[in-house]
Nucleic acid binder design. Sequence first.
DNA 1: CGTCGCATTGATATCGCTCAAATCCGGTGG
DNA 2: CCACCGGATTTGAGCGATATCAATGCGACG
Lengths: 202, 202
Amino acid sequence: MGPTSTPSASPLPDALLAHARPVVVRAGEVVFRRGTAAAAVYRVRTGAVRLLRHGRDGEEIVLHEARRGDFFAEASLDATRYHCDAIAAAAGELDRIPAEPLRRLLRTDPDFARAWAALLARQLRATRARLERLSLRTASERVRHLLSTDGVGPACEIRLHGPLKDLARELGLTQESLYRTLARMAAEGVLERGEGVLRFRR
Amino acid sequence: MGPTSTPSASPLPDALLAHARPVVVRAGEVVFRRGTAAAAVYRVRTGAVRLLRHGRDGEEIVLHEARRGDFFAEASLDATRYHCDAIAAAAGELDRIPAEPLRRLLRTDPDFARAWAALLARQLRATRARLERLSLRTASERVRHLLSTDGVGPACEIRLHGPLKDLARELGLTQESLYRTLARMAAEGVLERGEGVLRFRR
DNA sequence: CGTCGCATTGATATCGCTCAAATCCGGTGG
DNA sequence: CCACCGGATTTGAGCGATATCAATGCGACG
């Protein structure tokens, strides 16, 4: 989710770091499955992890993509089971933080509790922004919205972290539609495409 | 958002109640506007409040609907400005809880901080469920998903809180599409419609 | 050099949107 | 009591945007 990533994620308190255990994952590896006991929260050191669900015909729906520095499964801290699958999108290393010490820390460290609430609130805002995006009816509106909300700088520049295919799915489109839409917007002079970059022109 | 509503929202601690001020709203009244300073969090006593944004052509996008017992603008507690409009969907009464005492309480009351984090996490899960729903391509899949995730009981019963028109927008559909889809699903024997109720058959 | 995944373009199908109109309903006022 | 009204509901017809299916180019990698 691009700039959704907490840019300067609050450093883990020492008390938490003491409990974190590194987990090395290969691309495609399962971190946890939906329905299993929610025993830990994770943080991405390197690589990327996707939270996903599956439609009835088996197609994947990406709920969230966590990148370097991002926590994931934070929303499962007070749930008994994970509500989606977590799959490594790329090889990397994670911090695995068991739920119990984290809960304890939330009880005992007010500053951490506040930072944690802020983290969740940020996630919520980002997810609502995505929700708003999917409520838009046309492909070009969704692209515009993506740049407007997640882009940086005057031209609302977006760095693509993966293939356009993935972006298409995040926008609720097929790759073909996205290609055509980007091409049309570029032809209209609204958009500019660079190496792994999208930005507004004008 | 129906069952998204915190069913047994944690009772407000006395320390917080002391700071809450009642606000009476008429239907359609503006509670706050996007861009204004985020000075308070709210809780619905009676009535309902919608958080919404506007597309480029002015159409409304409902990000959230808070009902009796629900907080809203919780995600703005650590933001400087509101990121959407809040409009009363029905006449009612709200508790207005200034941000500062709430932040103080988060720092000083570990139990409350934990309950607050749980609240945000619940919101996040609910919003992701809605995101997943909007990722589905067909109208009938979205209806199915709504019943599956928000429905109660073996038949996944859903109580409608407003006109079908509103439900349609929550599902990212037009009223006409929704009517037709419900009619078709009912004809196929998948769905059953009652007075303000939707449920699965079979 | 062959293969695989991504990118790109074309042709067609399909689903939901738009515009339009008829019905139903509760409320309101004559 | 009845006519009227506005909003919600429902159904119809046609269109348009995206999905789907198909084919090709291209670059990385083994």
